[in-house]
Lab assay of single mutants.
Amino acid sequence: MIINNLKLIREKKKISQSELAALLEVSRQTINGIEKNKYNPSLQLALKIAYYLNTPLEDIFQ
């Protein structure tokens, strides 16, 4: 099972779900679904998340 630290990292960087969704060009519901482990992001989306949060991919999804 993948450990998902997206919410923790996003909140630590003081970025809202809506702000991150806008940067990634996805819906806020997509971010919410990823954070609640209801949706697994594509590799492309996971890499974009890591880029915009300036955090290694391995720290977000373990």
Rank of each mutant, 00 (worst) to 15 (best):
K12P: 01
L43H: 12
N54G: 13
G33A: 15
K36Q: 14
A22P: 00
P41A: 06
N40S: 14
K38C: 13
K36N: 15
E58A: 11
S27V: 04
E35G: 01
L8V: 15
Y39Q: 09
P56N: 08
E25D: 13
N40M: 15
L20R: 00
I34V: 04
Q17K: 07
E35P: 00
S18D: 13
I9Q: 04
N4F: 05
P41E: 03
I34L: 08
L24V: 15
L6G: 01
K7T: 07
I2T: 10
I9D: 01
Q29F: 07
Q29S: 13
L45N: 01
Y51E: 09
L23K: 08
I31G: 01
Y52V: 15
Q62S: 12
I15P: 01
K13A: 12
I31F: 02
I31H: 01
L45R: 00
I49W: 02
I2R: 12
L23E: 07
N4H: 05
Q29N: 13
Q62I: 12
L57V: 13
L47M: 13
T55K: 04
K38G: 06
Q44N: 11
I3F: 09
E11S: 08
P56R: 11
S16L: 05
K36F: 06
I9A: 07
T30C: 15
Y52T: 07
R10S: 02
K14L: 09
E19G: 09
Q17P: 06
S42A: 06
D59K: 11
I9F: 08
V26P: 00
P41V: 09
S18G: 12
Y39P: 01
I34T: 02
K7V: 06
I34Q: 02
Q62F: 13
E58R: 08
L20H: 01
I15F: 08
K48F: 04
L20F: 07
D59N: 09
Q29C: 12
R28D: 09
A50Q: 04
E19A: 14
A21H: 03
Y52A: 12
K7M: 06
L24F: 00
N32D: 15
N32G: 08
E11C: 08
E19K: 13
S42Q: 05
S18P: 06
S42W: 06
K13L: 14
R10E: 02
K12G: 11
K7W: 05
Q44T: 13
G33Q: 14
Y51C: 09
K38Q: 15
E25P: 04
A22L: 12
L43Y: 11
K48Y: 04
P41Q: 01
E19T: 12
L43A: 10
N4E: 03
A46N: 02
Q62P: 15
E11R: 08
R10Y: 05
V26L: 05
Q44C: 14
I49A: 02
I49T: 01
K36V: 10
L6E: 00
Q62M: 13
M1K: 12
I9C: 07
L8P: 07
E19D: 10
I34N: 02
I49P: 00
I2M: 13
I31Y: 05
M1W: 10
L57W: 07
Y51V: 07
K12D: 08
N37F: 10
N37Q: 13
L47T: 10
Q29I: 10
A50G: 04
I3A: 08
N32W: 09
Y52D: 01
P56Q: 07
A50D: 01
L6W: 00
A50M: 05
N54E: 14
N5W: 08
I31C: 02
I9S: 03
T55S: 08
Q62Y: 11
N40Y: 15
P56I: 06
N37P: 01
K13N: 11
S18T: 12
G33F: 14
N54F: 05
L23C: 10
K13W: 08
K38T: 13
Y51R: 10
F61M: 04
N4S: 04
K48G: 06
I34M: 05
L47H: 09
L24I: 09
F61V: 03
A46T: 06
N5C: 11
E19N: 08
Y52E: 05
I49F: 03
L53N: 00
E25V: 07
I60G: 01
I3W: 07
L6I: 09
I9Y: 09
I60Y: 02
K12C: 12
A46G: 06
L20P: 00
S16F: 03
E35T: 02
K7G: 08
K13F: 12
I2F: 12
S18I: 13
